[in-house]
Design a protein around this nucleic acid. Sequence first.
RNA 1: GGAGAGGUAUCGAAGUGGUCAUAACGAGGCGGUCUUGAAAACCGUUUGCCUUCACGGGCACAUGGGUUCGAAUCCCAUCCUCUCCGCCA
Length: 428
Amino acid sequence: MLDMKFLRENPDIVKQNIKNKFQDEKLPMVDKVIELDEKRRTMQQEADDLRNKKNTLSKQIGALMKEGKKEEAEKVKAEVAKDAARLAELEAAEGPVADEIQKIMYTIPNIIDPSVPIGKDDSENVEVTKYGEPVVPDFEIPYHTDIMERFDGIDLDAAGRVAGNGFYYLMGDIARLHSSVISYARDFMIDRGFTYCVPPFMIRSNVVTGVMSFAEMDAMMYKIEGEDLYLIGTSEHSMIGKFIDQILEEDSLPRTLTSYSPCFRKEKGAHGIEERGVYRIHQFEKQEMIVVCKPEDSPMWFDKLWQNTVDLFRSLDIPVRTLECCSGDLADLKVKSFDVEAWSPRQKKYFEVGSCSNLGDAQARRLHIRVNGKDGKYFAHTLNNTVVAPPRMLIAFLENNLCEDGSVKIPEVLRPYMGGMERLIPKR
RNA sequence: GGAGAGGUAUCGAAGUGGUCAUAACGAGGCGGUCUUGAAAACCGUUUGCCUUCACGGGCACAUGGGUUCGAAUCCCAUCCUCUCCGCCA
């Protein structure tokens, strides 16, 4: 969400930004909201004047009553009553206008960083850097569910019967591998100075609307029936929500947290063939990192954050690349975003395993996360990034560590979490 | 889920329809006096938001409604915390 004052003073910047994001249908909103804001302020001024008058007269009534001048008090009462209707009218109108302004402000996209490449959709995202050699072995790499089945590691049929499409049972060594990756990622981030956290897995609607746009909410969030609670789509939601309505001391920044949680997503929309198996699912687990920092530090933290994910994947012998989201593919709240993609030797291309975002002050403005600085109060900047999100991450892991004999080698860093195992041996 | 108590500033806490609510009183923080320094003592200072060029004005006592000329105070609903009971990893 933008600052209303900024929008009022820089409508052209806001409009150009909307054009850069190829959302021209939102252009009229800018003038509309300026007009509504003007209206709101005029109404507020009038209502405030009437309230001022009422307050003054009410005090007089109190004084008159005290002195026992009942008749005079009644006269003043009548005067107060004169304006009551007009004030009630204004008060009734204020709410809807304010709501409409907020709704539009929630829909106008955040100003993107000047470094973001202009493009209309994900086909125009830009590769930044590759890490590691994307090897294509001379034996065939099976589909990831086939690899898992060789280890009796997955049961999608049972999951379908129990919960439906988009769920899974991980079994045996594959399930253990899943937990190991999460544990390793947790320790990896703790070693880098992040504070480990296990957050609530459900959050209230006011937190939901604070951390994401309406469109995202509709496409992602599961609501608990009869309660004002939603299952989190990522622990970022409860982790940023942790700071709702807080005024943080400047010297307590940056807050760097790494959190574990299951994630629940509706995943509305059709999926292609490459999204079978455990690629796109309704439930997965994730180790996440979030940062709350001073505005001037957010670009620096952005670079540190995605680098963490790259380092983690490299420590597991998985080649990765970073891909910068172009303007049209960037979610409305984001200032800048990199996807971290892992190499798939089967598909001979990279696929998304993590996403690193700088939200600027957009979430902080919605959630009222402020910083008490030397020169007054200001909104904090928030960032988030995936450390690792199995089971999708396991696809990359299995494909890149699969050997010709059908075994899967366990990288050294993971062995302590796998009971010292160096290799997974197929059962069939 | 049942019964009870409660939610006021950074914290503790007073205030039960107006004239001590920006909010007493106590603590903490900040500045100062005193001191070689510190402690103690003393003096001063210390909420946020909206609006305005400014002066000023308005709003906020968990949240949302209601009663009233006027609500922290009375009424209704919701949320949260604590104690006890019940249930349950």
